[in-house]
Write a protein that binds this DNA or RNA. Structure first.
Lengths: 345, 345
DNA sequence: GCGCTTTCCTCAACCGGTAAAGTCCGATTC
DNA sequence: GAATCGGACTTTACCGGTTGAGGAAAGCGC
């Protein structure tokens, strides 16, 4: 396609065609008062005839408001594709942005440091009007960076991690506790957990909550490991747990995402262990994947799409200076399916 | 966070601090000749001290070049999260964009019509400098739209679908043929296929290729159905295929993505059929998911990340007016794993 | 010492909008 | 009949860069 530089039509052309000034066209297109119905119509007609739409670059330069929101995701590409969480989250964010005719600038980064640099550069370069920050870790450098820049931001993470930033989060501690209580109520005494990335704040909170719940229920061995969230890591972790001799072997395993639970299911099958007969598995997030396996996977279920939407709504609140401020979204709830049952003996 | 409107530093401040004119600063930051080493250094030092980065909005307004690329994806949110393909593709696109300090504008849309409107609006509004178009269908309206707008575009799809647009594609027909030949070579005579969305061009091509391959091999019943790519649809399709009485029941099923193959695996287990003993399953795309199940899934495997990267590279070629033009990327190759074997009897 | 390049940098006109101040005019008000 | 007012636009000054046309100073050949 030869990109012939078609004589691009501008506001001036529209103004000329409608027989008015640029200013009038601007007023019309921003739905501001001060124009007669007739003129407004004439302007719109002229614009339609010329196929004109306001140049958003020029608009945001002069009005110094940017209708783009940034989101940087920091996980290896391999893992991302498999993590239903992100795409669903992104689609939730999108759904709200679209309502405000706002767009999402997406970037995959390798480290938090890279993300800090990117966000700063986006903001300094006036490319975004705000950002959604995800995957907080302890002492996350993005907290200070966002404050220093004065950039409107919504932090997806527990307030204990996100400092003064407006945040939106799920109550993971409560959810973990519910998961453990449920398995204990089924009769499990040896419950293990295959966690996510150790550096992430919500992993740390889940780990602590798991320990606390196990202790308070007097459970013998609360065995936890951290992974990188990948299916392979989940498989490895499961394999090492299930190769323990029966008295030590966990009879139930909680996973930090769906993929690892699916991998765990594969490992159990590979080892000839029945699910849920020999071992119960409990997934986390509850994407459609949990309903596709056999047995289907019980899961801690939450509305990830809605989570993303709520994050976006909150960000708009921050940008406009109104809005709800920090708040939790609904806690994941237990959705029992075919992979959890009382232990055999 | 109170977004106090920090007195934003501009090129003028930097110029003043370095004791030069705006123009000099511009030259320095665009690495253009005409400045002494010393002055250049002074300018960079001043910029660093003030924490200034050029306002990209202003830059793209005056230079009328936009370093943002658009990508609209048209699938229901539910499905997207589960489709490893997209995230991997996006991450491939990203990897190349990043090299060119370019960003990706992402949007999820519901219909092609919505996408046409969106792309047009993005382009007219000077928000993007080009776009990656995916999921072509027959007589896709985006072909005409892109031509009409003169928008630089790379079409991800077979040239028979993408008209005059520069395109990048995988040779699905050959891959399908290889899949069928492989299964036939194992001894399968009743091979079925669970396809993707019927409206999509590549689905149509795969369907035709599947028919042709089966015919040329003299296979009895080449049973194919179209789905919406969701795991649930894959499960339904598989269930209806496997409930056929043994002489009619397929002994091998080819899927159009990984998720449906996983779902198929679940259905087989649910029906008490062994994989690959009673039925062989062959997935498509080969995300990590295929190695997590038990048995592991044989798949038509390709480098989706690389596919995305190649699409992005080609788009840059179109934008700069140079570059390779339309070309295929490597054909998916068969990767046998645990889910395919000769039929039992 | 004079013209002629080169090198390095300034100036001012854009890019395509927005927004605040200004103009014009017919309708009220006193 | 002058003063006031509000509606409907127009003018004009930006927004923060880029860009091409100069211009001053230094270097060079003769």
């Amino acid at each position: 396609m030869t990109a012939l530089p078609s004589p691009r039509v501008t506001i001036k052309d529209v103004a000329a065609r409608a027989g008015v000034s640029k200013g009038a066209v601007s007023l019309a297109f921003n739905r501001k008062p001060g124009l007669s119905e007739a003129t407004r119509d004439r302007i719109f007609a002229a614009a339609r005839e010329l196929g004109w739409e306001p140049n958003l670059t020029a608009r945001s330069l002069s009005s110094s408001r940017v209708d783009v929101v940034g989101l940087a995701i920091c996980r290896p590409a391999r893992m991302l594709g498999l993590e239903p969480f992100y795409m669903e989250f992104v689609s939730g964010v999108e759904s709200v942005l679209t309502e405000h005719s706002c767009s999402l600038l997406l970037r995959l980064v390798r480290h938090v440091e890279e993300e800090v640099g990117l966000q700063e550069s986006w903001w300094r370069g006036r490319r975004i009007g705000g950002a959604v920050l995800v995957d907080f870790r302890a002492d996350d450098p993005r907290v200070a960076a966002a404050e220093r820049l004065g950039m409107p931001v919504v932090a997806v993470g527990h307030p204990s991690l996100t400092g003064s930033l407006t945040s939106v989060w799920t109550d993971d501690a409560t959810a973990v506790t519910e998961a453990v209580r449920y398995l204990a109520a089924l009769g499990h005494r040896r419950i293990a957990r295959v966690g996510g990335a150790a550096a992430l704040g919500h992993t740390m909170m889940r780990t602590a909550a798991f320990d606390a719940a196990a202790r308070s229920l007097g459970l013998a061995g609360a065995w936890q490991v951290a992974t990188d969230y990948s299916g392979e890591a989940g498989a490895r972790a499961t394999r090492s747990m299930l190769t323990a001799a029966p008295p030590d072997r966990p009879t139930a395993i909680v996973y930090d995402n769906d993929i690892m639970a699916v991998a765990g299911l594969g490992v159990a099958a590979e080892m000839g262990l029945g699910v849920p007969g020999d071992v119960s598995l409990l997934a986390w997030d509850d994407s459609q994947l949990c309903r596709l396996t056999h047995p289907t996977l019980s899961a801690m279920s939450h509305d990830v799409h809605g989570f993303g939407a709520e994050a976006a709504r909150t960000l708009f609140g921050v940008i406009t200076g109104s809005g709800p401020g920090s708040h939790p979204v609904p806690t994941p709830v237990l959705t029992p399916r075919g992979s959890t049952a009382p232990p055999r003996s």
